[in-house]
């Protein structure tokens, strides 16, 4: 995590939610869809824009079949968007331990 924090000075924001059908983590893409891959996320530099995009995502959540969209901070590591903070890192990677790790 500290590596990610050191990799950037300015943070961007992205929008995440859980998919209605299975609860899996999804990210709002630049084309307005939702993807399981954080690499596909729309990185939003401006705070005002981010709030506008979030409000739109919230209005669309019912039609998009996603639950609880919200903004979170990302940095850029190795040219790719990377979440800041342990919670969002774990949401991206899945549990760091698990009886199911070999089954997923």
């Amino acid at each position: 995590m500290s590596k990610n924090q050191n990799a950037t000075t300015n943070f961007l924001q992205a929008i995440t939610a859980n998919r209605l059908s299975d609860g899996y983590v999804v990210y709002l893409t630049a084309r307005g869809g939702w993807s399981e891959r954080i690499e596909d996320c729309r990185a939003i530099p401006d705070r005002g824009d981010a709030n506008d995009v979030l409000r739109h995502a919230e209005r669309q959540a019912g039609d998009d079949l996603v639950v609880g969209p919200y903004l979170f901070k990302i940095g850029v590591a190795d040219g790719r968007p990377a979440p800041l903070g342990q919670r969002e890192i774990l949401r991206t990677t899945g549990p760091s331990v698990g009886t199911d790790l070999n089954l997923a």
Partner: peptide, 26 residues
């Protein structure tokens, strides 16, 4: 799933049946 209930309407119903939404899944 058909969109007739919003998440706000559905959440208390699923919780009454023990179904939580956690970090990665239900």
């Amino acid at each position: 799933v058909a969109g007739e209930l919003s998440e706000d309407e559905f959440k208390p119903l699923r919780l009454m049946n023990g179904l939580y939404l956690q970090l990665h899944a239900y």
